[in-house]
């Protein structure tokens, strides 16, 4: 069943990704000031949005784990965090490439850039903590608690850094500018369509990772049985 879902989603995602790539490369016009490099933006922003969805899923799953004490939620939390980290890395790297071309530097201590790096480190710490705990129940509980702390901190950091300094281009999507059209509607639509494609990809990653996690848990349980029998 799970396999069919994964394959089905893949069958939708792959053509969509290819089509988007074609449209982004050949059909949408260059941006006036930035030239062709702005196209990276079609991956930069959607990747961030997918990562944000992943972080949120991980938070919800972590809270659910502490309430229900069901290992399923722990598996969801780790799968979502890892997927989110992958997309956050895409977001960071595309941002750096863009920065190199437009600002002339690979890295600027701009608030959103800084925030993205900090949240990456926070959630990477979550994975580090997991890898250091052997007992699966203890691991699930402690990392769920850490994930809640991490989410709280990342949310506060977002605000803190905005006050600190700003250099990053402001919001462009009309839902964040209060309906003011800052970019061409075609460009904006393309962002949404590519967000959908990347989100599908993210869900596929997560499902595959989830299955690995379940198999891993089964192996671990069987190993303990084998040790207990002796």
């Amino acid at each position: 069943m799970r396999t069919k879902v994964i394959l089905g989603l893949g069958a939708v995602a792959l053509p969509l990704l290819l089509r988007n790539l074609y449209v982004i490369m050949f059909l949408v016009p260059d941006e006036m000031e930035q030239g062709p490099i702005y196209r990276i933006f079609y991956y930069h922003l959607p990747a961030f949005l997918v990562a944000a969805c992943g972080y949120l899923t991980a938070l919800v799953a972590s809270v659910m784990y502490l309430v229900k004490k069901d290992q399923k939620y722990d598996a969801i939390a780790v799968a979502a965090t890892e997927t989110a980290l992958a997309f956050a890395a895409v977001n960071l790297v595309t941002g750096m490439i863009w920065g190199r071309i437009i600002w002339g530097i690979w890295w600027a201590w701009d608030p959103r850039l800084t925030w993205a790096l900090i949240s990456w480190l926070v959630y990477f710490g979550y994975l580090m903590l997991r890898s250091a705990i052997d007992d699966p129940t203890e691991r699930a509980k402690n990392s769920a608690v850490l994930s809640i702390f991490g989410s709280a901190s990342v949310a506060v950091t977002w605000k803190a850094i905005e006050w600190w300094r700003t250099q990053h281009p402001g919001p462009v999507l009309s839902i964040r500018t209060g309906g003011v059209q800052k970019i061409d509607p075609m460009m904006e639509n393309m962002i949404y369509v590519n967000f959908l494609a990347l989100l599908l990809l993210g869900v596929i990653f997560m499902l595959v990772r989830l299955r690995q996690e379940e198999v891993q848990r089964e192996i671990d349980g069987l190993r303990r049985y084998a040790h207990a029998a002796n």
């Binding site: 580090m128 901190s153 950091t157 803190a160 850094i161």
Partner: peptide, 15 residues
């Protein structure tokens, strides 16, 4: 492990 987990989360307070 402790400082690695601690410092990134403390950034708003430290800042």
């Amino acid at each position: 492990m402790l400082p690695m987990l601690l410092y990134p989360m403390l950034i708003p307070a430290l800042l």
